[in-house]
């Protein structure tokens, strides 16, 4: 087995393979960044809607609760299939990466909205009452009192979520998106040893994920103590 690895290694780590893996890593990173970026914005929006009290927004609140609860309770693989089969007839010719990106955003919005919501709710009730008696409007209270106080509760679990998320994108390989996992499969199909192929891919994921998970741990320590 060892001989095989040693024998294949020079060819495996050749220029073309490295570029190929690099591009795949780029797609993994793209899905993660777009997913978390969109997820954070939409998640924030959803979390804020859930904090409102007005009766007019009641149906909207109900809708987002159902959305969040549902998408947190189905496997990412199933989301991928649903989006695939829903988008194809609606917008024919959508790229596979596009479909995967939409799925990723749906998932991250649901999870990040919960992270943000618990951050918003961590701000003591008294701060809200204080703002209310000073005649703050809902938006003023959110932007001047609640959000500035909740980011330190939101950031550590959000970073931890992104770490989970990088790994979840590996399922997009099933659609045929050439991200890291699919690249690994292709390399192994081309005849490289699975240990080499998947080992290299694991290493790539590790390089993406490890610094971020250290950062998440650092944030948690740093923000909790103060």
């Amino acid at each position: 087995m060892f001989e095989r690895l040693v024998q294949e290694a020079p060819q495996f780590f050749g220029y073309h393979n490295l570029v190929f893996i690099g591009q795949a890593m780029g797609r993994t990173l793209w899905m993660t960044l777009i997913g978390c970026g969109v997820g954070f914005v939409c998640g924030l929006f959803i979390a804020i809607i859930r904090q409102t009290q007005t009766r007019i927004l009641m149906p909207v609140r109900l809708l987002v609760i159902v959305y969040v609860e549902f998408f947190r309770r189905i496997p990412f693989l199933v989301i991928l299939f649903i989006v695939l089969f829903a988008i194809e007839p609606l917008i024919p010719g959508t790229s596979l990466l596009g479909i995967a990106t939409v799925s990723v955003c749906l998932l991250s919005t649901a999870f990040l909205s919960e992270v943000i919501r618990s951050g918003l709710e961590s701000v003591p009730r008294q701060q809200i009452e204080g703002a209310a008696t000073l005649n703050f409007s809902f938006i003023q209270m959110m932007s001047m009192v609640i959000l500035p106080q909740s980011w330190r509760v939101i950031l550590p679990p959000a970073a931890a979520f992104i770490v989970m998320f990088i790994k979840d994108t590996s399922l997009a390989s099933q659609l045929g998106v050439i991200e890291l996992t699919f690249a690994g499969k292709m390399l192994v199909n081309r005849g490289f040893s699975p240990i080499l192929g998947f080992g290299a891919i694991l290493l790539c994921y590790f390089m993406l994920s490890y610094p971020l998970s250290r950062f998440a741990a650092y944030l948690e320590k740093r923000l909790e103590s103060s």
């Binding site: 390989s173 694991l202 994920s209």
Partner: peptide, 10 residues
């Protein structure tokens, strides 16, 4: 720090 899917592939 690595995806379960790839671990299982391996």
């Amino acid at each position: 720090n690595t995806p379960a899917l790839v671990q299982i592939f391996l």
